[in-house]
């Protein structure tokens, strides 16, 4: 997702507020991938990611003209809305949260679909292990890792999306990476 207000975003949002379907479709196609991946990386569940993506674009549909570019980029705005929906869903589904070992999960399908399982085994294991570690982080740390490390937002953009200070983002990211390194080391020790 682009970090700034992409050329044409403002026009698209204005057209959406007037009920222009083509503008909505273009806007959706421009940003849906990032929103969906963010929700999936935050929740680890395809169902939640789908629902959150739908909810985010319904917000856009209903309040496109309320978006204020002065308050941050469209990307930060969308991530911020998505984050609120993800946290709400995780809170609701806390007792039922599934793990990535679920064979029905989208990630499991991707891993199983590789053409040469032996060659990619190590890489896939490493990615799965890191994904589990990210999902096991407390939400406040997980969201900064997902935004800054997986979606490559800068600190200022992440701070806008999460509605907090840049210093908070920096310190949470530092702590989150330390936690991840610790988890990865622990897994390596277990594997040995």
């Amino acid at each position: 997702m682009s970090n700034g207000l992409t050329n044409g975003d403002g026009d698209l949002l204005r057209a959406i507020s007037r009920g222009n379907e083509a503008a909505f479709l273009e806007f959706y196609r421009r940003y849906q991938g990032s929103v969906y991946r963010f929700a999936l990386q935050m929740s680890g569940q395809v169902e939640i990611a789908e629902e959150v993506t739908q909810d985010v674009f319904m917000v856009v549909m209903g309040s496109a003209r309320k978006y204020d570019p002065e308050r941050g980029s469209i990307a930060a705005y969308l991530y911020g809305v998505a984050r609120n929906f993800v946290l709400r869903r995780l809170e609701q589904e806390r007792p039922y949260v599934t793990t990535l070992n679920d064979p029905e999960s989208e990630y499991a399908g991707v891993a199983a679909g590789v053409p040469d399982p032996l060659a990619d085994l190590t890489r896939n294991e490493r990615i799965d292990s890191l994904r589990r570690a990210v999902l096991a982080l407390p939400p406040a740390y997980r969201e900064v890792v997902v935004l800054c490390d997986l979606h490559e937002l800068d600190y200022a953009e992440a701070a806008t999306a999460l509605d907090c200070a840049i210093g908070t983002i920096r310190s949470r990211l530092h702590r989150a990476r330390a936690l991840l390194t610790e988890k990865m080391r622990a897994e390596e020790r277990c594997a040995v």
């Binding site: 909505f24 991938g33 969906y36 990386q41 789908e50 319904m58 990630y107 990615i127 994904r131």
Partner: peptide, 20 residues
């Protein structure tokens, strides 16, 4: 983390667009 960022689906399922 870079490998993880590149991994996984890049698009929301088709059904989401239809519902929207």
């Amino acid at each position: 983390l870079q490998e993880l960022a590149a991994d996984g689906p890049r698009q929301a399922p088709e059904g989401v667009e239809q519902r929207l």
